[in-house]
Every structure is written in structure tokens, then in C-alpha cells.
């Protein structure tokens, strides 16, 4: 069975006919948005993270039909006019990219986090908790945390409250 889904993806309006069994992950990849990666298909790894109405979700366990009326953002849409977003640039500068397979999903989790906490002081533990749904095997997470800290203007002179 197919249904029509109308949604906004990376700022553009789409009306799509989707199989009701289809995941949002598959729908987005079929549109060519291959930043959305499948690492497990069951919501364990976070490689398929996209933003739905500003919230980071695992698109592999989110039905495409649920996207009706929603605003969706993927890593492709974060770079505009030939410029990377602040979060993307912070990842590049912090050395937070290695194999890159988890990166687009993490970029979206960080983007949601940074938008939610703009202007607020955050601890490393808060960053960790908010990113705990995204697995990365290359970086040990350290440089990703640094990238997020950099986006929120929180520099190294602030003591870490990790372990509190």
C-alpha cells in the first residue's frame, strides 16, 4: 500500500508517494540524500540521525508516512551557498572526522543540541548524554565533544565537570 506524504526536506517542499512500510531512512536515501547512513537498521547506532521538526531521531525506525506535515533536515541541507554550517565547520576544525560514516548523523545530533543550548553554558556530561544515541568507533568521542563546545563558545578554560 502506498500513501502520499507532504513534507519539507532541507527547506524544499516535497509531495511523495511512499510504501507505508518504508522507513524515513529509505525514503531520504531514495531522494539521493545519502548522508543518511544505515549502520544497524534498528535504532542502535544513530548513523541515520536526521532532524524532524528540530528533534534528532533515528530515521531507520521512523516510518516515512510519519513525516507527513513535518520539517526534515539532513546533513546535505546544512551546507548552504557553498558554506558549511557552524557545526560542520567545527567538526572539521576540531579533527572530529575520521572514517566519516557516523559523521552526518552526529552532525545532526550536534546541530539540534547546539540550537537548543545556544547562549547557555553546557557541561561535557550534558554533551555526552545528548549524543549517547550516536556511536562512533574512530574518534573516542573526544574531538566531537570539543567541536560541540566550540560551537557553544565554551572554551577549554572552563573546568570540566565530568565525573560529578
Amino acid at each position: 500500500m502506498r500513501k502520499t506524504v507532504s513534507c519539507t526536506i532541507n527547506g524544499r517542499a516535497y509531495t511523495l508517494s511512499v510504501d507505508v512500510r518504508q522507513s524515513l531512512l529509505d525514503m531520504l536515501r531514495e531522494l539521493g540524500l545519502t548522508s543518511v547512513k544505515e549502520g544497524c537498521g534498528v535504532g542502535e547506532c544513530g548513523a541515520c540521525t536526521v532532524l524532524v521538526n528540530g528533534r534528532a531521531i533515528d530515521s531507520c525506525i521512523y516510518l516515512a508516512v510519519w513525516a507527513h506535515g513535518k520539517t526534515i533536515r539532513t546533513a546535505e541541507g546544512e551546507a548552504a551557498d557553498g558554506r558549511m554550517s557552524a557545526v560542520q565547520q567545527a567538526y572539521v576544525d576540531a579533527g572530529a572526522v575520521q572514517c566519516g560514516f557516523c559523521t552526518p548523523g552526529l552532525i545532526m545530533t550536534s546541530t539540534a543540541f547546539v540550537e537548543r543550548h545556544r547562549g547557555r553554558k553546557v557541561s561535557r556530561q550534558e554533551i555526552r548524554r545528548a549524543h549517547a544515541g550516536n556511536l562512533c568507533r574512530c574518534t573516542g568521542y573526544e574531538t566531537i565533544i570539543r567541536a560541540v563546545e566550540k560551537c557553544l563558545g565554551r572554551q577549554a578554560e572552563m573546568p570540566s565537570d565530568d565525573g560529578d
Binding site: S35, T74, M84, Y91, V92, T103
Partner: peptide
């Protein structure tokens, strides 16, 4: 800067 950093953060890789 890594050669492939931009490709990877934008999902173009």
C-alpha cells in the same frame, strides 16, 4: 585540514 573532511561532514562522500 583533512582532505575529505568537507565531503564527510556534508554527507557528500
Amino acid at each position: 585540514t583533512r582532505k575529505d573532511a568537507a565531503a564527510k561532514v556534508t554527507g557528500r562522500a
